[in-house]
Design a binder for these strands. Structure first.
Lengths: 332, 332
DNA sequence: GAAATACATGTTAGCGGAAACACGAGGTAG
DNA sequence: CTACCTCGTGTTTCCGCTAACATGTATTTC
């Protein structure tokens, strides 16, 4: 910077002003400085600026698993939205679903210089209420309200309910459930909503089979489930397990949807092209990601407003996409 | 830091020494300092350290699209490997596939304080040879050698060749191809290898149908392709398009694999559970990601070696997974 | 036309750490 | 017993930038 200043014949401070947008610099000086910067290939040192200002221009994202379809979509939206606002994104993956680990990840990130953190909360932790460092603006992406931090997510319950209602509406006596792993929050909520909705409708609640999100687990679950003849409708907690269910049904000679209706969750891009095309629940995770970023940046840049927004939480409504994997039951 | 030093009754420098691992500090002083740090909840300021050392402890990843299955898997591996080495990861997504944009992203990242950059190169750029800033250690994840930077990737050609050979070996006269989009490097290479292998085997090279990686495009491509009766084998450039092909085949009454053999690429986790289970090419992208990180960190931490390693490039061999979507042709 | 005002720029003083060097106290060698 | 290390620790200085204040020069105001 000193070199630029010398070449342009101005003080370092003026260079700084030019770099940081127009404070009050004459057009002439600005041009001189800019030309000098170009000649010298000057690039600001972020570390120095961060040291001086306490701002980093970076958002951290903490999550358990990048591979989960759900998370990737959120992260992608977060990255693009953050970039649009001039922030970069640092990603941290947490191994164990313990509060301690999450906290460590958040701290690691804040140590690493982020202005704010988004935690994608998809795992049941060892502690009921996640407590996180308060030193830094923090937003949670999850489908549950009740955190001390602003939370954005999708309304899992609405989605699960829609799936159940759809199947009951077709005339099925009840709906069986292939649940996600016990350690997953979305899995728990989808399962709870499924159960609640069956009860509310006065139907029998068959014991759910628990999978682990993988197609294989759905396949195995279906093999167990379909030993009984009176299973006519299955709601899988995600599309991948639904694929396994479809496969198992085919192997067992149950035609979908004539002998068996299947509903998934997530609307994978392959869902419309499975055989048969899968009825499923679509969630607008891009909006979730964008909301997280917007809110976080607002907190970062206007800390005054943070207090009022503490309680914020908004949930995207999922949408049931009816395709060919569901139909009225055989004997209806 | 000053507070810690005062509380522990030592100088700031000693605190610094304790924080940065054991230089030469007495066990006693170390304990005093550590206890003081704990009492005060001391956390190092990364920006200050970066300013003083010129090191950031962060790796940048530049890519075009986080959502592509391929990229996510690499990024996930990169993040976990980087974390294992004490680095954090900053992610940048580039919109337009131009050299200018990539360069801008890399610069943005280095401005933003990274010690090294990994570029996941999956798009055909406007310029034949990507030229990137040399100021920072940089590794490219791509399936092509010939960059000025170390490159790690998978050998797409081997995978495509294996697919073709498998189908020819079953007795098919030739193999049709549903290609990925023209702007994609992997798509180009898979297509080129497919074509070359057909030629080398003295077979007719039918015109490929170009898709865009999406299941829908595979579906549409197959609808066009299957108007002709003598299509007995299709090699889709990725699994998602293969799913579309399977769907189209079913709609058109072609039984897979009896009437039509289909091979995909990527080995999605649902591939084994499609109907029929999809023969496909599996790539070890985790290894690719790990290698990128390892090499990059080596460059960062031992710049002396960087020179020798400039030429490095290693490619993971993909593996053909034979499942039920391929069989000898009908009239064989 | 003198004083008040606005505005463009320069000066000073850190931000929080880490190199580089300085220093004193023990240990070692001859 | 002295000269010389070695080792633990403290001092100084600087990393590159920006906030806050200081300065000086046009411009306005009555």
């Amino acid at each position: 910077m000193a070199d630029v200043a010398k070449l342009a014949g101005v003080s370092g401070q003026t260079v700084s002003r030019v770099v940081n947008g127009n404070d009050r610099v004459t057009a002439a000086t600005r041009l001189k400085v800019e030309s000098a910067m170009r000649q010298l290939g000057y690039r600001a040192n972020i570390a120095a600026r961060a040291l001086a200002t306490g701002r980093f221009g970076t958002i951290g994202v903490v999550m358990f698993n990048l591979n989960a379809v759900l998370n990737v979509r959120i992260v992608e939206a977060v990255v693009s939205q953050a970039q649009a606002h001039g922030y970069s994104v640092s990603v941290a993956v947490v191994d164990a679903p313990t509060e301690k680990d999450v906290r460590a990840a958040v701290r690691g990130l804040t140590d690493r210089a982020v202005d704010g953190v988004i935690v994608i909360e998809a795992r049941v932790l060892d502690t009921p209420h996640l407590r996180l460092p308060e030193e830094v603006p923090l937003v949670i992406a999850d489908s549950r309200a009740g955190y001390k931090h602003p939370t954005f997510g999708m309304d899992e319950a609405v989605g699960a309910r829609a799936a159940v209602d759809h199947l009951l509406g077709l005339g099925h006596a009840t709906v069986h459930h292939v649940a996600g792993p016990a350690g997953s929050n979305p899995a728990q909520r989808r399962r709870a909503a499924w159960q609640r909705q069956l009860k509310r409708s006065g139907r029998a609640v068959p014991p759910p089979v628990v999978g682990d999100w993988s197609p294989r687990s759905g396949y195995e679950a279906a093999h167990r489930l379909l030993t009984s003849d009176d299973v006519s409708a299955v709601f899988a907690a995600n599309d991948q397990m639904a694929v396994g269910v479809l496969r198992a049904a085919e192997e067992l000679g149950r035609r979908v949807p004539h002998d068996l209706s299947v509903v998934g969750f997530d609307d994978l891009d392959v869902a419309p092209f499975l055989s048969p095309p899968l009825t499923t629940v679509r969630q607008d995770l891009e909006t979730v990601g964008r909301r997280c970023v917007n809110h976080l940046i607002a907190q970062i840049e206007e800390p005054s407003k943070a207090a009022t927004s503490q309680a914020t939480s908004r949930f995207v409504r999922p949408e049931l996409i009816v395709r060919a994997s569901t139909a009225p039951p055989r004997h209806a």
